[in-house]
Design a protein around this nucleic acid. Structure first.
Length: 274
DNA sequence: CCGACAACCTGTGAGC
DNA sequence: TGCTCACAGGTTGTCG
């Protein structure tokens, strides 16, 4: 599930219910996800007040009084709010309970593939190696065509995998890389450094618009998110290119093509994207 | 420095 | 129905 929009929708979904509550219990059911879970630091985090949930790239940063919990959803992770006491299912690896009495609420981390991560950073979180190497946030004013032009100077690799490199720009995953390039009319195989400023002036707004509209689409399901009923709620977004191999391009009717770049599927229209 | 690729894991769907 | 295989929205690390 998670690219930047999904992570942001998750953040908005859980923050109101959890902020300003204290961590009442933490249950780590397995030794590790991508990294070891912070079993040994459990005692230190209990009782601390959560004052804000922020997002950096695809990481969620849960800011406590003295420490930050870093959560990454990986490929298959999800966070859900529910009533305490509901039995954990197969891939529910972490339970965090907040508040007390009638206010008590459970945040449950499920991750079948276990590519996700949950770390406890006791000190200054922002200087952590995982965060320090991250590139620019695409939904900020600093992310402009001029910035991207400079960043891509001399880069010979194709634009699509380059856009997905989180050391350069964060949060653009496989789906939204294809979608943004379709919307900007740029062939995913174009060497990144050869794209003109003019064309980047089209690409950058399309990246922002693609991400923002996905956030809005997810936002419409926030109510379902907060309640703990079925896993639905997310209505499947309509993609222009992603997953549409062989189907007609919505713009010109020629068939959407599929290729592999850096071992990831890419989708594009050979006529609209040059 | 760069690109290609393997690795981490389970679930799902296609094809036979 | 059941088996096998390829592939899945991410990221890190290694190797040439």
């Amino acid at each position: 599930m998670p690219e930047l929009p999904e992570v942001e929708v998750t953040r908005r979904g859980i923050a109101p219910a959890l902020e300003n509550r204290r961590l009442a219990s933490a249950d780590f059911r397995i030794p590790a996800l991508r990294y070891p879970l912070p079993h040994a630091q459990r005692a230190a985090m209990l009782g601390q007040r959560l004052h804000a949930i922020e997002r950096r790239a695809k990481y969620l940063l849960l800011r406590f009084d003295q420490g930050t919990m870093l959560i990454h959803l990986g490929m298959s992770g999800s966070l859900r709010l529910m009533a305490p006491g509901l039995p954990a299912e197969k891939h529910d690896h972490v339970d965090l309970e907040f508040g007390q009495g009638a206010q008590r609420i459970l945040l449950r981390f499920r991750d079948p593939r276990r590519f996700g991560a949950l770390l406890w950073l006791a000190g200054e979180a922002d200087s952590h190696p995982l965060l320090k190497v991250l590139g620019i946030e695409p939904l900020t004013e600093a992310f402009t065509a001029r910035w991207l032009k400079n960043s891509l100077e001399g880069v010979r690799s194709p634009i699509k995998p380059t856009l997905m490199d989180s050391h350069r720009v964060v949060g653009i995953g496989n789906i939204y890389a294809s979608e943004s390039l379709f919307r900007a009319g740029i062939d995913p195989r174009t060497p990144a450094g050869k794209i003109s400023l003019r064309r980047l002036e089209r690409l950058v707004p399309e990246i922002k618009a693609t991400l923002l509209s996905a956030i809005e689409a997810g936002g419409s399901s926030l109510r379902d998110f907060i309640h703990s009923d079925g896993s639905s709620g997310y209505f499947q977004q309509q993609y222009f290119a992603y997953g549409r191999a062989g189907q007609p391009c919505y713009r010109c009717n020629s068939p959407i093509r599929e290729l592999r770049q850096s071992n990831r599927a890419s989708f594009y229209c050979a006529r609209c994207q040059r």
